[in-house]
């Protein structure tokens, strides 16, 4: 049901019955290593190209989610997923492996929550009984796609972010136990004229703020409603900018409560500069770490706001600014 301008409220409470996260070697050294279902030692995952490794990340996350959900592969009715590689091939190729009806989506790093929002919508209205959604990114495949060859010695400025290697998948159903998706706010494309591709956080912050404010307005709630409001990959800079924007717009926001997935994955001292990014970043943290914490009872209600920078190397070279988007999904756990 649409509430306000752009928020869906899901009365039938689509439930996340299981989730799975897969990570790479760099993530294994990170802070959230214990929350992964599967960690890889080798960035290649035994494949002969990074793109294939990227696809394998997807497949493993999907398989694991199905396994943990205690259902058969054949029971999954739809897959909604996406990633950052050209024409989202890893996602589509993984869907080829499964042979399940598939919707490929692209929202840059916001893909994870875009997928979750759409999935919840479909499940809520009886469009599916079991539905898989996921997002993934692979550090080197994305670097190759968006920046320089991985071995190229280009110095990254301190505003740059580290693309996560990993995949997160969630299995949704209209019955069962688990955290429920209660509402979702679809973002609009916001572009405030930032153009530095090495400073995504700074470009994406206004989109995140716009979506969060819209969410509060549409549902007539404020930040107190949630135990945690977590953005996708704003990084250090983006988070600070967002906090300042909230203050400027007169939205009360507790600094403790406003966290960023990109700042949670890695330890201090890992060379990630401003934080983590990538479609897999928010998927891993939300589907892994945060849902685990919800199951433990540490968190009751969270708002996950995945942010995406909708640029390509081509638009950057043509001196275009970076359009950004953010989608918010509210997840509640009622024991």
């Amino acid at each position: 049901m649409l509430k306000g301008h752009r928020t869906w409220v899901f009365h039938n409470q689509p439930v996340i019955i299981s989730t799975a996260t897969v990570g790479g070697p760099f993530e294994a050294n990170g802070r959230l290593a214990d929350d992964f279902d599967l960690l890889h030692e080798d960035l290649w995952l035994g494949e002969d190209s990074y793109e294939k490794a990227h696809k394998v990340l997807f497949e493993e996350a999907f398989y694991k989610a199905i396994e943990k959900g205690n259902i058969e592969k054949e029971q999954v009715e739809f897959i909604i997923s996406g990633d950052l590689v050209n024409q989202i091939t890893p996602s589509s190729f993984a869907a080829r492996t499964f042979g399940v009806p598939y919707l490929g989506i692209f929202g840059a790093c916001s893909t994870s929550m875009e997928g979750l929002a759409l999935s919840a919508f479909i499940v809520n209205y009886g469009g599916a009984k079991y539905l898989l959604t996921g997002a993934a990114s692979h550090n080197t495949a994305i670097e190759k796609q968006f920046r320089y060859p991985t071995e190229y010695g280009g110095q990254k400025p301190p505003t740059a972010q580290w693309t996560v290697t990993g995949a997160g998948a969630a299995l949704l159903s209209n019955e069962g136990k688990g955290p429920a998706v209660t509402s979702a706010t679809i973002g609009r494309v916001v572009d405030l004229g930032m153009s530095d591709p090495f400073n995504m956080g700074g470009a994406m912050a206004p989109a995140a703020v716009d979506t969060i404010e819209a969410h509060f307005r549409d549902l007539n709630i404020d930040a107190d409603y949630y135990d945690l409001i977590v953005t996708g990959d704003l990084g250090k800079i983006g988070r600070n900018v967002a906090l300042e924007l909230f203050e400027k717009n007169g939205v009360q926001m507790d600094e403790e409560k406003f966290q960023d997935c990109g700042l949670m994955i890695y330890r201090e001292g890992q060379p990630v500069l401003s934080g983590a990014s990538g479609a897999g970043c928010s998927a891993i943290v939300v589907y892994g770490h945060l849902l685990n914490r919800m199951k433990k009872g540490e968190l009751k209600r969270i708002l996950a706001v995945a942010t995406g920078a909708l640029l390509s190397p081509l638009t950057f070279q043509q001196n275009e600014t970076i359009p950004c988007i953010a989608h918010a999904v509210s997840i509640e756990f009622r024991g």
Partner: peptide
């Protein structure tokens, strides 16, 4: 290119 793979 013959000898090495990108290390990442």
């Amino acid at each position: 290119a013959l000898l090495f793979k990108p290390k990442g």
